[in-house]
């Protein structure tokens, strides 16, 4: 007998093994190689230990005090050192953590902040259309006002964008509340969902908010 008896099972074992390996590879790719994992959680080390939890959360400074172009342009600006110095010329004025900010202010050199959220160059994004229409920062950036260091909270993948573009009524809120990240229609979850449904439909209808799904909306 050249072949032992168990070799008779090989024709059955090969497909089973292939299925298991293929399944593992497919699962690994969907878990590890999609934006949900590659981007979410990205938290670079910033040159100055600036905390949104302190400034936007505890102090309650509005996002637009620092990101002042967010309502008017496609681009959301990162504040210049002079904006920090409005307060830090008096507060913590000799603190070593702020040395880079003071240096930037006096020498007019940029602070090398590391950009966290960035779409590929073939995608055209626009802040003002979203923010001015009543889509909050929290939908795309998470609870920044509770983060000490900013991290990437949402995937910002194409399906993420389309989930909202297909049904904006589920996300829209009064435009005055876009920078109030913890805002809800009501503290009662069931009631909030009902108000979102009713008001969302009305807002989308009354303000003629479009549901943009053609490729050229985002790829030009």
């Amino acid at each position: 007998m050249i072949f032992p008896k168990w070799t008779n099972q090989i024709p059955f074992l090969i497909p089973i093994g292939l299925a298991l390996v293929g399944g593992a590879v497919a699962a690994g790719v969907t878990v590890y190689c999609t934006p949900k994992n590659t981007r979410v959680g990205y938290q670079p080390v910033q040159p100055v230990p600036f905390s949104h939890a302190v400034h936007a959360g505890q102090l309650g400074v509005d996002c637009r005090y620092c990101h002042s172009t967010v309502e008017k342009s496609w681009f959301s600006s990162i504040p210049a050192a002079s904006t920090c110095m409005n307060c830090h010329s008096l507060i913590l004025k000799d603190d070593p953590r702020l040395a880079l900010v003071r240096e930037s202010f006096t020498n007019n050199t940029p602070i090398p902040w590391v950009q966290v959220h960035i779409v590929p160059d073939y995608v055209y994004f626009n802040h003002s259309v979203h923010v001015a229409r009543g889509f909050s920062c929290v939908e795309c950036h998470g609870r920044v006002d509770q983060m000490d260091e900013v991290h990437h909270a949402k995937s910002l993948s194409m399906s993420f964008c389309l989930d909202c573009h297909r049904n904006p009524a589920a996300f829209i809120r009064p435009p005055g509340k876009v920078t109030d990240l913890g805002w809800q229609w009501s503290t009662n979850a069931a009631e909030a969902a009902k108000l979102q449904e009713v008001n969302g439909k009305n807002f989308v209808h009354d303000w003629r908010v479009e549901s943009l799904q053609s490729c050229s909306a985002c790829h030009r």
Binding site: P35, T38, R39, G41, Y42, Q43, P44, F75, S77, D121
Partner: peptide, 24 residues
């Protein structure tokens, strides 16, 4: 998956993702 990481996200085809154009 999804935990905090200091490493920049992987870009598989960087030539399309990062083109020769300027951002602000």
């Amino acid at each position: 998956p999804g935990h905090l990481s200091r490493k920049p996200p992987l870009e598989v085809f960087p030539d399309m993702d990062r083109q020769a154009k300027l951002r602000p």
